[in-house]
Design a protein around this nucleic acid. Structure first.
Length: 555
DNA sequence: CAGCGCTACCACACCCC
DNA sequence: GGTGTGGTAGCG
């Protein structure tokens, strides 16, 4: 819920800034389509959300990539294009040197791993052996939990090691099987590595002592409380079956006698000697950037290349080069669709709970609404801010609450603590400003326990005319709509008459996701960034043509 | 003018004894 | 003093 709210705020912010930059398109630029040429889609954005908005508006199968362009602070710009077009300009490796796939949240994806350890801190470690053992363990887990058959030959093994660091990416090429999204992949990975967490937590330094006979299975329940079962669900939209791990079957499997696997090979030491896992668990977050095959980190010169011990070989194809096949295989969110595709899920206890809460959410909060920084009443906000901006102290609105029955706006104030009760500012407690729209007055209360105990409330002061006037508008509208509108308690939307700004309007518009707001920014700096990224070298057969950069400039 | 998502950590408010 | 919460540095 909070997440949705944040995303919306962000979208609004984006939209506002773009409207400011380009109020209206003043020039009509007709364009002839050339049917004989494949559609060229190549757009750069400063913001990830804008890139994804553009993807949504696109008919074609386009994807978001992140391009690093500043050495120091890892700043990125976002490219939207097709896999084919990216490969066309990418393959020469003369440009687009530091490219990342953005694994979209909520997108079906492959099972993948980021593996690493410091060679100096682990002189005895045998990386290849560790990779082989991990793959073995994962395949066993896929078989036991989902009845998925696979082997090392289905694992694309990419190497990015240096003298100091052993570094690999593994991308599983399962047949007609994918995960619901990368959050589920993370849940699965944490689950199957559970026995290894015990090894890290244990203080005794003997890394091979796995306590046998404790009776826990390969993939224990805690702390990721989650069951496993193969309840075959009805087909998930248009893409085949949905296989879900569920609790009863987990118990069944758990009760089957299984010896605890020895995962001590996964334990490595970091620079400071602390125990860590060989598997990086930080790569299963929303919209994770995952470095592309043959790309290097900016400032480094080591690209991801096929590992010596890779055993995955893509099928030969007449139309697609072998390198292109490898490239396509390396893309985590490039899942081949088929009508027999199975979508694997792996829930955590928490995410399940949340879903239950969401579906069974009662309407206890339906009467009141709340938010941060600015309420749907910008005029009132401005007035409140003027009240808490005195004697050189600039207060702010920390959050607000609106109570429908009383038509009362309660503002929690920050940075300004003047309390009428004690005649000075509180030292550690904040104050509130309450705006009573019904009686057109405002007063002050505070969070201080002493003031609260005596139920302190300052004198009431009349609201200024501009706030009241707006309130009158609201009344008028309510009056005219009185016959049909009686849904205030069901729909906690403030009267629209006072929502004078477009931003406020949008804040209540649930359909904002559907609007196509897809302008690439018109910005010299972006173009410069693009040139830096794209034209790292000059000359060459597959150099990015000028038109592609111009496209960024014009649109 | 311009990255994103997340975790660990800290400071502070609040609550209770 | 324990617990919850908001802000943030820093990591991947």
């Amino acid at each position: 819920m909070e997440r949705k709210w944040e995303a919306k705020l962000k979208q609004i912010e984006e939209r506002a800034s773009c409207y400011e930059r380009k109020p209206l398109s003043s020039v009509y630029r007709p364009r002839l389509s050339k049917p004989e040429e494949p559609p060229s889609i190549w757009k750069l954005f400063h913001r990830q959300t804008q890139a994804f908005n553009f993807v949504k508006s696109c008919k074609e199968d386009v994807h978001v990539f992140a391009l690093e362009y500043k050495v120091d602070d890892g700043q990125r710009i976002y490219l939207v294009t097709t896999y084919a077009q990216l490969w066309f300009y990418y393959k020469s490796r003369r440009n687009l040197l530091h490219c990342y796939e953005v694994i979209p949240e909520n997108a079906v994806c492959k099972l993948y791993f980021d593996l690493e350890y410091n060679k100096l801190a682990n002189p005895e470690a045998d990386g290849k052996k560790m990779v082989a053992l991990l793959i073995e363990h994962v395949c066993k887990a896929l078989q036991e939990l989902y009845r998925v058959d696979c082997s090392a030959e289905d694992v694309f093994n990419l190497d990015s090691s240096t003298d100091e660091k052993f570094s690999r990416h593994l991308i599983f090429q399962l047949h007609d099987v994918a995960f619901k999204d990368n959050i589920h992949v993370g849940n699965f990975v944490r689950k199957i590595l559970q026995p290894a967490f015990h090894l890290i937590a244990s203080e005794d330094d003997d890394s091979t002592s796995e306590t046998p006979g404790l009776g826990f299975s390969h993939f224990p329940e805690t702390p990721i409380k989650q069951g496993i079962a193969f309840s075959k669900m009805s087909s998930d939209k248009d893409r085949g079956e949905n296989w879900t791990l569920d609790s009863r079957e987990w118990e069944r499997l758990g009760s089957a006698k299984q010896s605890s696997p020895d995962l001590s090979f996964l334990v490595v030491k970091n620079n400071t000697g602390e125990k860590h896992l060989f598997v990086d668990l930080g790569v299963y977050t929303r919209n994770r950037n995952f470095r592309l095959y043959k790309s290097s980190k900016i400032g480094k010169h080591v690209a991801l290349e096929i590992a010596e011990d890779n055993k995955f070989f893509p099928k030969q194809s007449k139309n697609i080069s072998e390198e292109n096949q490898y490239f396509l295989s390396s893309l985590v969110s490039n899942v081949r669709f088929s009508d027999t595709l199975r979508i694997l899920t792996c829930d955590t206890f928490q995410s399940k709970q949340k879903r239950v809460e969401h579906f069974s959410s009662t309407s206890t909060k339906a009467e009141n609404i709340e938010g941060f920084h600015c309420s749907p009443y910008p005029e009132v906000d401005r007035f409140v801010l003027s009240l808490v901006n005195k004697n050189g102290i600039q207060g702010g609105i920390r959050c607000w609450n609106y109570f429908f029955p009383e038509e009362l706006l309660v503002y929690d104030i920050c940075k300004y603590r003047w309390c009428e009760n004690i005649g000075r500012a509180h030292k550690s407690n904040n104050i509130m400003i309450l705006v009573d729209l019904k009686n057109e007055v405002w007063y002050q209360k505070c969070h201080d326990p002493v003031c609260k105990a005596e139920n302190f409330k300052s004198d009431c002061f009349p609201l200024p005319a501009e706030v009241c006037l707006l309130f009158l508008f609201k009344e008028e509208e309510e009056f005219t709509a009185a016959g049909t509108m009686n849904s205030e308690t069901q729909n906690p939307k403030p009267p629209s008459g006072v929502l004078s700004e477009a931003a406020s309007d949008a804040a209540w518009d649930d359909s904002i996701d559907e609007t196509d707001f897809v302008e690439a920014t018109e910005d010299a700096e972006l173009a410069e960034a693009a040139e830096n990224v794209l034209l790292s070298y000059s000359g060459g057969v597959d150099e990015i043509p000028d038109e592609l950069i111009m496209q960024v400039l014009q649109e």
